[in-house]
Structure formats: structure tokens, C-alpha cells
Computed example of a mutant assay.
Amino acid sequence: MTDAAAIFAHVKQSGAGAPLYLRLRKSIEDAVSRGALLPGDALPSERDIAASADISRVTVRKAIQDLVQHGVLVQRHGSGTFVAPRMERVEQSLSRLTSFTEDMARRGLDVRSVWLDRGVYAPSPEEMMALGLSAEAMVSRVSRLRIANDTPLAIERASISAGFLPDPNAIGSSLYAALEARGCKPVRAVQRISATNLGEADAELLEVTPGSAGLNIERISYLPSGKVVEFTRSVYRGDAYDFVAELRLGTGEGIAP
């Protein structure tokens, strides 16, 4: 019996009284915790796990999907199911306006991007409204997958008036650095965060299961003059990011009993 098969062999004898899928889930979690399954290790197929544990493939699928939803496992289309990389959750302050590159650099993480789109387009009605553009204006769109320590964390889709950024191909690792070089780096922003379930395309890019929890983040950034310079819609992995805000009691306000 292989080491992987041994993990599943005694599922029926463990956790008496608990549903079989929960027993299998615990067996896999325990194997990950004690190092019998390491980050990046591939799990056997559903068929093989079902045969080793003497349970149905439906039960195996339910246990695996549960672990994927909780970030213990990841599924890659056409490749199989793997133990998820160990990843510390990233905390980002809501009180500072920083770029993804700056955030990750402060944490000592290796950052890279995969470009999904860079081009100049006629603006959509949403971009016209957010950026204050006329129908005749053009907009630079930059979309990229943001990766830290080989883990995809976010998909950023930014729109900037072509007047501020005529050539999106001039962007290196940081959009804000490119804007600063042109004298139009934003100094403040309004950001809206909402929960979402990731669709199939975004989930595949972020290497999670479709329907996994994510965060939609919409940001409008402003120049010192008050003019809008950036309209960005991002999707972040819900299992990797925490947004933190410091709250202060207003001057002269008491605390209700």
C-alpha cells in the first residue's frame, strides 16, 4: 500500500458516528498537519481515494470540495487536486494609499505580474462616469494577475485617462510609479469593498475553485487638484487577504451604556 493510500485506508474506522465525508476530510487535514502530505503534493484521483477508503466517489468529492473551499486543497483544471501552498494571510491597511507592489515589498515577498491586457480603448459608459471623460476621450486599460511568492492573490483591472497615461506599455512593475513619473500620482482614494463568489474565469486565474469566496474592490483615486486619475476594479482571494481599518472615537463623543 502506498503512503498516500494508507492515509485513506482507515477512514471508516475513524470518527465513529460522524458522516463519512467528514471522516475523510479529517484524515486529509491530519495528514497535511503532520506533514504526511506536503504543500504542492498531488492527491490520488477520486476513484483511487474511494477504492482505498472503501467509500463512494460522491463522498470523496464532497470532502475534497469542502477542503478546497477552506483553502486546504487547490484544484487545477486538467491537472488534479493538490495540497495548497502554506500562505500567511496578507493584511492591508485601509488608511494608506499604496500599490500592490509597495504592499508586498514591505512584507519581503517576491512579486510578479502576468499581463492580461494593456491597451488604449474608447471608454465604456462606466469609465466615462468614473473618470469624468467625454465620449471622444480615450482610456488606457491595464489588467494583470498579481502574484506574491508564486501564489496568485489578485486580479487588477485599472482604467486611466489616456491623457495621464498615453502608453500603458510604459508601466513596469508598478502603475503608481509610472503615474508618478508623469507627475500624476494619486494622493487619495475612495475604496469600496464587497464580498463575492468567484466566477469560473477569475477562479482559474487565482487557482481556486469556482464559487470560492473573494473580495471585489472598486477604487477611484484622485490627484491633489481633486481630478480623478484612476478607476480600478480588482478581485482578491478571500482566503489570502484581510483589510484592516483603525477606528477612533470622535472628539466629544461618549460611549452609549
Rank of each mutant, 00 (worst) to 15 (best):
E204V: 11
Q69M: 08
S45M: 07
I49W: 05
S113G: 05
V74P: 00
G250T: 00
A50Y: 05
E218H: 13
A105M: 09
R96Q: 15
M104S: 04
Q13N: 15
R57P: 04
E230S: 06
D54S: 14
A195W: 15
T98M: 15
V111D: 04
A18H: 13
R157T: 15
R118Y: 07
I49F: 03
E91M: 10
A105I: 10
E246Q: 13
S33M: 11
L37M: 06
A5H: 12
Q65M: 08
I255T: 14
R248V: 10
E91V: 12
L165N: 01
G211D: 11
R144M: 06
G250C: 01
I217E: 03
G17A: 03
R188L: 03
E207P: 04
P166V: 15
A256M: 09
G80N: 04
L67G: 02
E126R: 10
G35Y: 08
G214P: 02
A154M: 14
F8V: 11
D41H: 06
L247D: 00
V139G: 02
L145T: 05
R47G: 15
Y236V: 10
E218D: 10
A203N: 03
G211V: 03
R146Y: 01
R192A: 13
S99V: 04
I193K: 11
T251S: 00
S194M: 12
A135N: 07
G71E: 03
R96Y: 05
V228Y: 00
G254D: 00
Q75E: 12
P19E: 01
V114Q: 05
D48G: 03
H70L: 11
P123G: 04
G132V: 07
T81L: 07
A130T: 02
N216Q: 09
R89E: 13
L116A: 08
R144L: 05
S95A: 15
L249Y: 00
T232V: 15
V83N: 05
P224V: 06
D117R: 12
D110C: 01
F231P: 00
G40I: 06
A137W: 07
I64R: 00
A201Q: 09
Y222N: 04
G238H: 02
G78W: 08
A16D: 12
Q69P: 00
L249W: 00
E230W: 01
F164K: 05
E136R: 13
D3F: 10
R233A: 08
A177L: 11
S221Q: 05
W115Q: 15
R157V: 10
S56A: 09
E156C: 10
R76W: 09
R47K: 15
M104T: 07
A245D: 09
S134G: 14
E156D: 10
P39Q: 06
L153M: 11
E91A: 13
L215W: 09
V72A: 04
V244R: 08
R112G: 06
Y222T: 07
R144A: 03
K185H: 05
H70K: 10
S140I: 03
R144D: 02
K227N: 14
P19S: 11
L247M: 05
R141K: 15
Q92D: 08
A18N: 09
P123Y: 10
E246M: 05
E88L: 12
D66K: 12
D48M: 01
F8M: 08
L247I: 10
L133V: 06
G199N: 12
